[in-house]
Amino acid sequence: MIHGLDVKGVLKDKQTRCEHYHLDVDIVAIKFKCCNTYYACCKCHDEDVDHLAEVWEKEEFENKAILCGACGTELTIKEYLNSMSSCHYCNAPFNSRCKYHSHLYFDLKRIED
């Protein structure tokens, strides 16, 4: 349990860092749409389940699906994507390189539609 929520994966600490991503700024867990479960990262998800991850659609970006490991606040997908790589609530920095694999979680190609 992290901040009262069950976060799955091979966690290294109580701020959602895992064996795959464990820099100081790797403090975001993502709720996977397919199983409605928080995981520390996509690799933790894939190692734990026997199904493919589903991406959140643009119409679902108001759902709370991001957990800040620093303060425990659940952010909406929209808040996270507009965050400029920090928590809107506690200002803890997030890993800016996560944007390179956000397509694994969110349907970003439809944002421009």
Rank of each mutant, 00 (worst) to 15 (best):
G69N: 05
T73E: 13
R97N: 04
S85E: 00
L75R: 03
V55Y: 04
P93I: 03
A92H: 05
T76H: 07
E59V: 04
E74Y: 04
A92D: 03
E54I: 06
N82Q: 03
E79I: 08
N63V: 07
E74R: 07
A65W: 14
L75C: 05
L81T: 03
F94I: 00
N95C: 01
Y80N: 08
E59Q: 02
V49L: 10
T76K: 11
A70F: 06
H101W: 14
G69T: 05
E59R: 02
T76R: 09
H101R: 02
D50Q: 11
C90M: 14
L75Q: 14
H101G: 05
W56I: 11
C90K: 15
L67C: 10
N63A: 09
N95S: 05
L67G: 09
C71Q: 04
S96Y: 02
E54S: 05
E54F: 00
S96D: 09
E54K: 11
N82T: 00
E59A: 13
R97D: 06
E60R: 12
G69P: 05
S102N: 14
E59N: 01
V49A: 03
P93N: 12
F94H: 01
N82P: 00
C68R: 07
A92L: 06
K78Q: 15
V55M: 12
Y100W: 12
N95K: 01
L104F: 07
A92I: 12
L75D: 07
V55E: 06
Y89A: 06
M84G: 10
N63D: 07
Y80Q: 06
E60Q: 12
P93M: 10
S86Q: 11
S83W: 00
S83K: 00
K58F: 08
I66R: 03
